[in-house]
Computed example of a mutant assay.
Amino acid sequence: MIVILKSGASDQQIDHVIERIEALGLQAHLSRGTFRTIVGVIGDESKVSEDSLRSIPGIAQVIPVLPPYKLASLEAHPQRSVVDVSGVLVGGGNLGMIAGPCSVEEPERMDRLAKSARESGANLFRGGAYKPRTSPYAFQGLGVEGLKILKEAGHRYGLPVVTEVTDPRNVEIVSEYADMLQVGARNMQNFVLLTEVGKSSRPVLLKRGMSATIQDLLMSAEYILSQGNPNVVLCERGIKSFDPSTRNLFDVAAVPVLAGLTHLPVIVDPSHATGRPDLIPACALAGLAAGADGVHIEIHDEPEVAKSDGPQALLPEQYQELAGRMRKMAELLGKTISPPNPEVAA
């Protein structure tokens, strides 16, 4: 940590800063320049609060040397993490191919979509049983019944299932049915929810908030990791912009940026990023080319009657074509698509 003092800081103020640092068991290295005086702090930075230092008279700026996301940082964990979702691997050269409808619907449709996703090459099946909606009058999901339908459909075809958990009180029941818990964009900074999923043994898919910085995303991941759950996959799903051409701005650059900061796997969600089926294939391939560890895509066989987000869903045949192209991209990049797991319990 580096402490920069104000240009007019007195000797008494400088001495007080050094005394405060040393009282915390850290070493203070004073450097006086022509215009600035700097104090280098050596030792365990967790012992000192940046805010408490900033409140000391005479201090202009406190600059941490290490990132605040200790457990999520690549420096703390140089080896890339591989997350095991009931036998399907994500990260470390293994691609997670997540497909399914936005919302869990009737059992017959979910069975058709799971079968189609499996035949196309997906290795994880998704669907929302609980839906956080902007309008209180919109479809809110089927709840526990939806969880049962999702699990039965996915596991019938060897596909571990991913679903969103929206309430800390529901973490336990969702964990009974889901192989992976999703924390959506609206809940990325719901710290109570993050703490609860961190206590769960289930892997977590953490989506970037619509207005969140990359550091915000990593700090949210830190909440989960700090509770003892190391199995976190980050998801770039688009951020808000001023341009209405797409639903969100697909920040594909976030993928290599995150790769340089964290050991956690990173996937992309071009469905929510663009909201346009015609743009999903190009953005999915761009995400893989940028280094993503997987792709999350919504599919539906009748988008016009979908319970939610039908306009952004690919038809099963469209996903099948895209999945074939993604397999070729994976081969080109030397990555493996982990096969579905026939041993997941039905």
Rank of each mutant, 00 (worst) to 15 (best):
G158M: 06
E176R: 10
I214H: 05
P281L: 13
N94F: 02
C235Q: 12
G127E: 06
L332S: 12
N341F: 08
E196R: 08
K148M: 14
G324L: 03
V165W: 00
C235V: 15
V83W: 09
I98L: 05
G40M: 03
M97V: 14
G141R: 10
G238Y: 04
A323K: 09
P68M: 15
R156W: 06
E45N: 06
V257N: 11
M110G: 09
P136D: 12
L217I: 08
L333M: 07
K70Q: 01
L315V: 11
P265N: 13
L194Q: 02
Q79E: 15
L258V: 06
V232W: 01
E164K: 13
F250R: 12
R32L: 04
L89Q: 14
Y319W: 10
G184V: 09
P270W: 10
V252G: 03
P230G: 13
G93I: 09
G146I: 14
R118P: 00
Q27N: 03
I56D: 05
S31N: 11
L89V: 09
V85G: 03
V83I: 14
V104C: 05
S116G: 04
T163Y: 04
R276H: 08
K47R: 14
P168F: 08
G25V: 15
P256A: 15
G40T: 09
V162L: 04
N341M: 11
M219L: 15
S103C: 10
V295I: 09
V83R: 12
S211N: 13
N187T: 14
H300L: 02
S135C: 02
Q61S: 06
E302M: 05
I21C: 01
P339T: 13
S10F: 02
L206Q: 06
V162C: 01
V171T: 14
G260K: 10
E331K: 11
G275T: 15
H29S: 08
I59V: 11
Q215W: 00
L218G: 00
P136R: 15
N94Q: 07
R36P: 00
L234V: 12
I18S: 00
Q227N: 10
A28D: 02
P68A: 15
P68H: 14
E196V: 10
G92W: 01
I280A: 07
L142V: 11
L53F: 09
D179P: 02
L225H: 07
E172Q: 02
Y223P: 06
G141W: 07
T195Y: 01
I98Y: 03
N248E: 05
D216G: 05
A9M: 04
H16N: 13
S46D: 12
E222S: 10
V232D: 07
S211I: 12
L194D: 05
I297L: 05
P168I: 15
P281R: 12
V88T: 07
Q13W: 04
I224M: 06
H16F: 13
H16R: 15
L288R: 01
I173F: 02
E302S: 08
S245M: 09
T163N: 02
G100Y: 00
K199R: 15
A99M: 03
V204E: 02
P132N: 12
G294K: 03
G294T: 13
V41N: 07
L234C: 04
E106V: 14
A273V: 13
H16Y: 12
E164S: 14
V305W: 01
I214P: 00
S103Q: 10
P342A: 12
V82H: 06
E105G: 04
D251L: 15
T166W: 03
A306E: 10
G91Q: 14
P101D: 13
V65I: 14
T166G: 06
I63L: 12
G184D: 08
V88G: 02
